[in-house]
Amino acid sequence: MSESVTLTINGQKYSAEKGKTVLQVAADNGIKIPTLCHHEEIEPYGACRLCIVEITRGTRNRIVTSCLYPVEEGLVVQTDSPRVVRNRKMLLDLLLARCSENKVIKGLAAEYGIEKPSFREEYREKHDCIVCGLCVRACEQVVGVSAISLVNRGIHKEPKPPYLERAKACIGCGSCFYVCPTNAIQMEDKNGIRRIDRWKVEFKLKKCSKCGIEWAPVAQLEYIRKKWDLPAGFFDICPNCK
């Protein structure tokens, strides 16, 4: 049995397994903390900072990201203190100035009462990507191909394929598309072809020999077949027909 600790979240005592993060324990107990760059199958990264909480240790209070902060005995956490809310609002304000037309960001900002950014109109940008790196991390940690990476630094940082050319290692699985919190990645399956323009890739889709639907990129199925050493023709039939 693993060691457990007792911590206080929003005035309520909880017992938690040592090694878990504050965000995990909050989620386990139904306490909602907003996140953008977090996914439970992917290592926490701490980029969007939306999951910030205020912790008290002794007489010191400080702001930490709950996705990374490990629970500890006697920890006191506030998930919506005035200081947390003030900082979270500024984060959304900054994100809204960057992604002024993105639906997800606009919706989140509105939840916190922000209709338009505090910054001058001429500063506003129309990005959809918030550079949270979820696409890159999913591709590396879940898919295992590392077809894309974050390039440049500072304000120029962005997810890109190597050398800004076609992502040669990409298998077209679409994990990046599914995991993106702001719908910044477009993926389209049309006429037997899957396209992900952001990575400059196109993939032929496999047709189910039974029902005829085009159900996954050939490259992805080949990748899986080889990885798991499956027989040739294993993916000729789609999961629905199997």
């Binding site: 990264y45 701490g46 980029a47 900072r49 984060l91 900054l94 100035a97 500072g154 940082k157």
Partner: peptide, 16 residues
């Protein structure tokens, strides 16, 4: 220019 660009406050905040 020298911010690593990872977190929102630093990347977006310094820019503004």
């Amino acid at each position: 220019e020298e911010s690593c660009g990872k977190c929102v406050p630093c990347r977006e905040g310094i820019k503004r």
